[in-house]
Design a binder for these strands. Structure first.
Length: 113
RNA sequence: GCCGCUCCCCGGACGGUCGCAGUUUCCGCGCAAGCGGGAGGUGAGGAAAGUCCGGACACCAAAGAGCAACGCGCCUCAUGAAAGUGGGGGACGGGAACCGCGAGGAACCUGGACGGAAAGUGCAGCAGAAAGAUACCGCCAACCGCUCGCAAGGGCAAAUGGUAAGGGUGAAAUGGUGGAGUAAGAGCCCACCGCGAAUCCGGGUAACCGGACGGCAUGGCAAACCCCGCGUGGUGCAAGACAGAACAGGGGAAGGGCGGCUCGUCCGUUAGAAACCCCGGGUAUUAGUCGCAUCUUGCGCAAGCAGGGCGCUCCGCUCCGGCGGGGUGAGAGAAAUGGCCGUCCAACCUCGGAAGAGGGGGACAGAAUCCGGCUUACAGGGGAGCGGCACUC
RNA sequence: GGCGGAGUAGCCAAAUGGUAAGGCAAUGGUUUGCAAAACCGUCAUGCGUGGGUUCGAUUCCCACCUCCGCCU
């Protein structure tokens, strides 16, 4: 996602769940060919180094888990909360997967640990 | 052996695997634009940071002159394109062994944006009489009034002159110590000490130093205005260059370029007319392309590899001119370095007399046109030099 | 990325190098049957932080920290 309007539409009409380190927000759109994803790391999350690291880890999470989604055609926004830069990748992944389950993104037979 | 200071270097390593970005190449589909897939090699820092300096580069017609404005400022050597950095020296400020009866001098240590205060202007609250020219108290002289006293003389008040020795104020009060001198005093004079612009002599490449001479005026602040010398045109890659369909259609009649001002200079205009002309704004190109990642030769289909040049950097040698060897050359575009696994090394923790064993797992931090500096952040490791302490010979 | 600007009490803010104005808020009192309003008081451990120049710095100089704005 690159356009400001896309982020605004997901925020206004989509669903969101907040965890300890991240907020996950999504909006299904059957018109899309595949998933369209965005990451938000505000200045409160840390300096430039920490924020780029968070974005890279978020991208890695989407690459690992998006293939197991029940419906892939959707907007997906991952927002970092203050304190996320102190978390390890495993902690981020646990939080992210929990919020994804709460939103019903992951299909039933998924046994990803 | 331990501790400290200064300088320099490094700042996790190796491998596998799934991905990402640029690039080269191959395969498939397609008339093409392009789409999909495979393979190769490459891919963050010493500060990439702050944006504090200096440049390259680009545009402003050319980048000219003067003024204004801004910046810099001891001397010398080295280095450098410049900014800057380093060595040595000087003066000044702070501390100070020691010397002197004292004023004071001073080895040595240390600090810094350190031209000029004898061109001019300005500033100094409060306190104090007075803050660049001054008399409050005090001291002295002469005069005068009242008063106490037999008298010698004393007290009080007013006013004139001399006096910077004493008191008090202040950050700072017009040389200091001792003597002579005087009505009282004073560089007024003498000895010593200090200070000192110009002149002369001597030393030093120079800043400056020493002496002679003369005197005690001319206190401080220029990171106040200013003066002297030197330097700078402005804007910054969001600079700027190029391509650009279709549609709508703005401004321009004499000035404008010129962004602090003037000179100078360039383009253009004065019958009418906005058709031509000139200037300019907006959208699309999935936020276009270039600027934007070193040059060259050989081999290879190409990435690449090898040789040479260039830039940066490290090491060694040097007759100081250089020579030899090693390392290195990223290029995204809302912006590529991430995830996982294995082995090893250091901080740190635990056990232990020790050897060692187990745990543990890296500091600050992410390129954005490029380069050189400065500043700031930083776990830990290594090297060199210097100093101190203890021990041994 | 580049270029500018600002920081003074809880808030808004002024000050030529010489005792840090003023307003709001807070708080104590007067007034009132109780309040409001009004009136009288109080409130800066040093002017974002650290150095320097100066007798003296909020002010001048240097280096940092934080915040804001402009340029495609």
């Amino acid at each position: 996602m690159t356009q400001r309007e896309d982020f605004a539409r997901v925020k206004k009409t989509g669903q969101a769940k907040a965890g300890r380190f991240i907020i996950l927000s999504t909006l299904p759109d059957p018109a899309l060919p595949t998933i369209r994803t965005g990451f938000i790391t505000t200045k409160r999350c840390g300096k430039a180094h920490d924020r780029t690291l968070l974005r890279r880890r978020f991208r890695s999470l989407v690459q690992a888990h998006a293939p197991h989604f029940a419906e892939i055609r959707r907007y997906l926004v991952t927002i970092a909360r203050p304190g996320a830069s102190q978390a390890t990748f495993a902690e981020l992944e646990e939080d992210w997967v929990r919020q994804a389950r709460r939103l019903g993104l992951l299909s039933r037979p998924d046994q990803k640990s």
